[in-house]
Design a protein around this nucleic acid. Sequence first.
DNA 1: TTGTACGCGTTATCAT
DNA 2: ATGATAACGCGTACAA
Lengths: 355, 355
Amino acid sequence: MGLEKKKATISDIAAAAGVSKATVSRYINGKSDLMMDKTKERIRTVIELLDYHPNNAARSLKTKKNYQVGVMLSNIETPFAASLIVGIGSGLRQRGYEPLFVDCHDSIEEEGKALASFLDRTVDGLIVSTIFMENPALIKASCDGCPIVLCDRFVNNYAFNVVSAEQEESMYRLLLHLKEQGYTRPALFTLPWAGNSNRQRRLEAFRQAIAALYPDRAREDVYLFEAGGGAEDQLERFLSQLPPGEKPAVVGINSEATVLVYRAILRCGLRIPEDVGLCGSEDWNWDSIMNWATLLTPSITTIDVPTKQMGCRAAERLVELIEGGDPTAQVITLPCALSPRGSTQLRGGTERIDR
Amino acid sequence: MGLEKKKATISDIAAAAGVSKATVSRYINGKSDLMMDKTKERIRTVIELLDYHPNNAARSLKTKKNYQVGVMLSNIETPFAASLIVGIGSGLRQRGYEPLFVDCHDSIEEEGKALASFLDRTVDGLIVSTIFMENPALIKASCDGCPIVLCDRFVNNYAFNVVSAEQEESMYRLLLHLKEQGYTRPALFTLPWAGNSNRQRRLEAFRQAIAALYPDRAREDVYLFEAGGGAEDQLERFLSQLPPGEKPAVVGINSEATVLVYRAILRCGLRIPEDVGLCGSEDWNWDSIMNWATLLTPSITTIDVPTKQMGCRAAERLVELIEGGDPTAQVITLPCALSPRGSTQLRGGTERIDR
DNA sequence: TTGTACGCGTTATCAT
DNA sequence: ATGATAACGCGTACAA
């Protein structure tokens, strides 16, 4: 109790086992193929006895590796980020790496600071999921040899390794679902997409799907509004311009947009799904009774982005890069699932309450 | 481009500035009071020019500090954890420390592993927010001298430093609010509380508040159910045993419980707030349009736990401990706010839709 | 006010 | 099959 129990070092082990530090080091690092069994055994027991753990700082000083990777998130306070954290964390730790998460608060300055801080701490690599499409600092870091994987984001003018969610196919399936349900007029309601690669990709996917499913469609049903307001105005614009006989459905560009439109629809005194269908991209993939899509009444049809798996896959790819795998930029695309719910159930059946 | 731009070391700086490594080291560590101005200036410019950054591994090898703290969370995939992460992260980074977050998935084994891994990495301290009230491994770590702060949790048989949310006062205010609204019979609906210090504290707070506000109340209106089911049965039991003329209101022990009861009430064909009042403890403190309490219709009255601030405060206290502050165990208690919403608005006014 | 020299705990390169 | 020994980059007595 009173004794200062100093931590055992490799020298202690060497002395206690009657071998040299070099031998102990070899044992620890699995280079013990040509080692006598009884030597191994001696080292093993002494390590056990003294509860020896190699010192990471010393190790990393020598090897220039510290088994830590920096993870830059755009806004941690969203379930999207939470899922990403879980996926990245498990993927990384599985392979012996420790994640350092930092919230960049959607600010390019914060992001620059975080990047500098990580480079300073000499992390072994970076996983980046921030929104900025113009990102010279990140490109520079990559050029300087820092392994980087982008997660669900793209950056202009540089071919990064990216793990992302499939968009075209899932958007097509969503619009097909709406059509099958009897909706004749799907419109995309989106928040500003400038500088946001995901919104741009979804917008593009929407246009493609419309072109495929409604080849004769002339005007473009894309409505832009702000998180601060405007959903209601745009909704009224959309509905007032509707030719008679058309059945409208709104596709929200993300979870937030979908909820905002949901409120706008109710405020206009309209019913979901009878008067207007509603569905959206669900970034959270949050399997819980607290999922926003099932909290609303009726519950909302969504495209479910496999956030956790994206994180896990990004971790996997990054470790490949760190450990010398082929650095050629790959774009890994994960499929999304469609979850039809009450908000688009125009014909037949009654809504099933999930869980 | 072709040149291998090796990282500058302290020796490079010393050489370039024409001084000794010791002087540079002093400069870096702020011990430059007695240093000649022109020496300082020389060092400063050279550091700038060579873009020198001290190597953390070497530094930590020498000083046994690495400015990293381990953070053990019970389940990262909840907004509660997300808020905590933000609070802890900013509090820690503000003071020059880096958080290492790990998800223990409500498993004591995982937690043990994480603890060992952190101790192994020689973090400077620990912030713990996991559910286990019996936790010998954690007590041992503390006894061994590792600075530890518990966040919104308690552990039996050991006086840890704790940052937590105030419970008695807020529960009292919630029940008072219900009474003022005309509800005569508040009942607590809770998930199993064994081993969960927060649920136990809330349960106790509920009992105290009932004793204070309804001194004549004989039987105890506490209903236990499981996340998997049972809310509906318990609700029917509660309502059927109600004396005529009583106005019932349900208090959910946490966000999840409240949502489960919400669904049960609707399934029973009852109206909120007319037939039954509903309110609950909101652990997330999640200021967003996606907040569950405002997604539901009507939106739900909550006690808002200041999660982010708790994390921030825990970080602050931990750094105090790490840097040699008084280690005497403190219990820091943060006040909660009451957010009255439509779900308990029995008399007067119409529900205001928030945001 | 500044410099010298050693050691922190490892791994890696030689030897043997 | 194993042992000396020299780095790795930094902080810090101690000396000057």
